[in-house]
Nucleic acid binder design. Structure first.
Lengths: 296, 296
DNA sequence: TAGTGTATTTCATCATCAACTAAAACAATC
DNA sequence: GATTGTTTTAGTTGATGATGAAATACACTA
């Protein structure tokens, strides 16, 4: 059978999520039409996803009758491989960081170096431009806008975040979903429990990013949200696979969870103050070695 | 002779700007190599631009000797036609505003409707997505993220700007270029002098946008700058060709110039307060008719 | 008739190619 | 020797078509 598309894979995951949400047990019947409508797509990718699930023995097709749920697999959290484009961006940032990339690059160079198709390379460069990492040269090519390991960039980022983030929880419309809080707390507890070796730095970064982005999203104001998303994208480039050390993980998680506590108690001003000091502390860290210095 | 490229056109303009900056008079000689280096491009487009200028009688080529400046044309400010992509975006926004566009569109629809090539349509949609105007649907197509004429969007924008913009002039690195102040003031005086009919709303919008963006840029912090740029892009979609009325122009220019005065005097806190009230006032305006209500 | 199975249509992505433009190298001239 | 003229090389853009996937319409079965 044909390999599943990205969309089909995603749909398959979301179908399983729906099954869990509805608390369906083995023997239950699934409805193609309704599922497609719930997921906002047509039946075609839903059918394909179900075919794949059937192959894995999760469901069974009955001709002209429908789909029977056989057994739902255990939820495997860590099964989502990062996007190729994100990976390429991280690789590029690292190579730039290490001085392997000149100050100016052409589209073709990016294509060759990272083995990307043209549209992908264009997307990559467009994203970098969006992050003010590069700019188009007047004629051909792109120019990097700051030195690798630019301390100033870091400072500017923190000044910006110091203005935005403590305000987030004081916005009028600010409202956190209790489910989100619970999930966040669980992830933080998890990160604290397992030794650093296993807790990959990627997962740690993603948790951090989700925490800050989630708070921004809770304002209901899309500008706060997208500003934060952008900060995260930028941070990903330098923090994605950076070994941050267990001590830093501990401090970070503790501070995050303290904020969650206060937010849950409705003490938003306290949480705001904590956020402020959280960012201040992080901004003062310097990345001296591989084991030291991570950011907030 | 072949029609000038966009780059060649731009180069031609910048050459004239250089000539003015250097205060060169008729009879002076231009150097291809040096010009190319100054503009950061190769000699090829410079040569082409000079050829075009020669055609217009601005310069004359002497074989193997160089380029002689014959006469420099009067600076015609208004000669820059807006980018086709920007225009298409404005058109799309207006049609959406007027309910002519459905909640979901496909790439092909955009191509057909606005007579764009595929890459251009993709760029357009990517930009709109960047502004959180649309998002990709799971399968094919794009979905508009807010209702046309969304009041909430406006409110969110102003809340965000109220946080950012008054802080801009209090940032540590904030420093305005005196030349910029002078030019800004001149443009504002100009806008006040000429009757509304002639002062096109597009020029008025661009002046406003440049004012706010220039202040953000003066922080030296790229995050403030790009946040403001994004706000301007979004505002362009609804304000670009909106008839704002002379009264509004008057108020707006006056307030802007007051800020400039105080900034020049080093009274940044006063300017900050003015900015705050400026935005507050603008945020309270409602666009009821074609003649009333413009924004900050 | 409510659902699944099948066929058709529409759409997007990717690869390839041609046309053209900028960059770089080289030659010629003052 | 510096500067312009010319050629070569490299890079980008846009168009076209093939492929495959999603949306839609239709047919069929319980």
């Amino acid at each position: 059978m044909a390999a599943p598309t990205r969309l089909q894979q995603e749909i398959a995951e979301r179908i399983l999520q729906l099954v869990r949400d509805d608390a369906l047990a083995a023997g239950a019947w699934l409805n193609e039409n309704a599922t497609a409508k719930r997921l906002g797509v047509s039946r075609t990718p839903v059918r394909a996803a179900l075919d794949h699930l059937a192959e894995q023995g999760v469901v069974r097709r009955h001709l002209n009758k429908g789909i029977e749920l056989i057994q739902l697999p255990v939820a495997n959290e860590s099964a989502r491989p990062p996007e190729t484009l994100d990976l390429a961006m991280v690789r590029l940032a690292r190579e730039r960081e290490n001085g392997l990339l000149p100050d100016e690059v052409s589209e073709l160079e990016v294509m060759r170096r990272y083995e990307l198709g043209r549209p992908e390379a264009q997307k990559l460069l467009a994203r970098l431009a969006d992050l003010d990492m590069v700019e188009r040269k007047p004629g051909y090519g792109w120019r990097f806008l700051h030195e690798p390991r630019d301390q100033r960039l870091r400072d500017e980022s923190y000044r910006f975040r110091l203005l935005i983030e403590p305000m987030v929880m004081l916005e009028p419309g600010f409202q956190l979903d209790p489910g989100w809080i619970a999930e966040m707390r669980a992830r933080h507890v998890e990160a604290l429990k397992r030794p650093w070796r296993e807790a990959s730095s990627i997962a740690f970064y993603e948790m951090n990013a989700d925490f800050h982005e989630g708070l921004a999203a809770a304002t209901g104001n899309r500008f706060f949200h997208s500003a934060m998303r952008r900060q995260n994208q930028l941070r990903r480039l330098s923090n994605y696979d950076w070994d941050q050390g267990m001590e830093r993980v501990r401090v970070n998680c503790t501070e995050h969870m303290a904020m969650l506590d206060h937010l849950e108690a409705g003490e938003n001003e306290v949480a705001s103050a904590l956020m402020r000091s959280h960012l201040l502390r992080a901004s003062k860290l310097r990345r001296m070695s591989k084991v030291d210095g991570a950011e907030g």
